Amino acid sequence: MNPEIVKKYPIWKMLMDYSIAFFAVILLLPLFFLLVIIASIDTGFPGIFVQKRIGLNGEIFNVYKFRTLEPKTSRKSRIGLWLRKYKLDELPQLINILKGDMSLVGPRPDIPGYYDKLEGENRFVLLLKPGLTSEAGIKYRNEEQILAQQKNPLQYNDEILFPDKVKMNLDYYHHLSFKNDLYILLKTFSVLKS
C-alpha cells in the first residue's frame, strides 16, 4: 500500500460514533430488553447471535445481532423475518460501535474469506472499521432476495455483488468526510422509513 494514500482514522468519526451510539443505546434500552426477550422466546435463549467477522486491518471480531433463525430448522422465524425487514436485528451492533469494533458508517462486516482476501489497492477497504450502514449496504439492503433469484447465488455474489461492494467501499474510503457520513446516515433513515 502506498503510505501517502493511507489516512489516519479521523477523530471526528470516532467522536460521532461513540456519541451517537451511546445516546442511541440509552434511548433504545427498553426496546433492546424487549427484543432480547422476544428473540429468546422465539429462537431460544439467549436471543443474541454472535458471529466472527472481518474488522479493521483484517482482524477478526465478534459481531452481535438479535437471533432470527429457528434453532432446529435454521429457517427464519416469523418474528425473525420482521426483525430483518426493519433491520432491528442489527441494533446490537451499537454495542460493537461502543467497543470500538465498528463505526456507524463503513463497509458492512463480512465473514472471513472475502475482505481479508482482497489484494492491491482494494485492501484500503480494510483501513475502515466495518459499519452499521454504507452506500453498498443501502444498495444491497435486499441482498438475500437478490441472491435467491439467481441460479448460482454464490457465483453471483462472488462475481457481481462483492466486487461492486468493494468498489463502492473503496470510493467511500477515498472520499471519507463528515458530510458524506451524515449523508449516508440520513439516506439510511430515509430508506428504512420507506
Rank of each mutant, 00 (worst) to 15 (best):
N2Q: 08
N2W: 08
N2E: 12
N2D: 15
E4N: 15
E4F: 13
I5E: 13
V6P: 07
K7I: 15
K8E: 14
K8W: 10
I11E: 09
K13L: 05
M14Q: 14
L15T: 15
Y18R: 14
A24D: 06
A24R: 10
I26D: 04
L27C: 14
L29C: 12
L31D: 03
L31G: 08
F32I: 07
I38T: 09
I38W: 10
A39K: 08
S40E: 04
I41Q: 06
T43F: 00
G44S: 03
V50W: 07
Q51D: 09
K52W: 08
L56I: 07
N57I: 00
E59M: 08
I60P: 06
I60R: 14
V63D: 01
F66N: 01
E70F: 10
E70A: 12
K72I: 12
S74Y: 13
S74F: 15
R75G: 03
K76H: 11
I79T: 09
L81E: 12
L83D: 03
K85L: 11
K87I: 08
L88H: 02
D89M: 05
E90W: 03
P92M: 07
P92G: 08
L94V: 02
I95Q: 07
I95F: 11
I95K: 01
I95V: 13
I97C: 00
L98G: 02
L98R: 10
L98Q: 07
G100E: 11
M102N: 08
S103Y: 11
G106E: 01
G106T: 03
P107E: 01
P109D: 01
D110A: 09
I111G: 00
I111L: 14
P112N: 13
D116M: 02
K117Y: 10
K117I: 07
L118Y: 05
E119R: 09
G120E: 04
E121F: 06
N122T: 02
R123G: 01
R123T: 14
F124N: 12
F124W: 14
V125N: 00
L126G: 04
L127Q: 13
K129W: 00
G131W: 00
T133Y: 00
S134C: 10
K139W: 02
K139E: 12
K139S: 08
Y140K: 01
R141T: 12
E143H: 06
I146V: 15
A148C: 11
Q149W: 03
N152K: 14
P153V: 06
Y156F: 15
D158A: 11
L161W: 06
L161H: 11
D164A: 12
D164T: 12
K165M: 05
K165Y: 00
K165I: 03
K165W: 00
N169Y: 00
D171Q: 08
D171M: 06
H175L: 02
H175E: 11
L176R: 14
S177F: 03
S177Y: 10
K179L: 14
L182N: 06
Y183C: 11
L185E: 05
K187A: 15
F189I: 15
S190Y: 15
K193F: 13
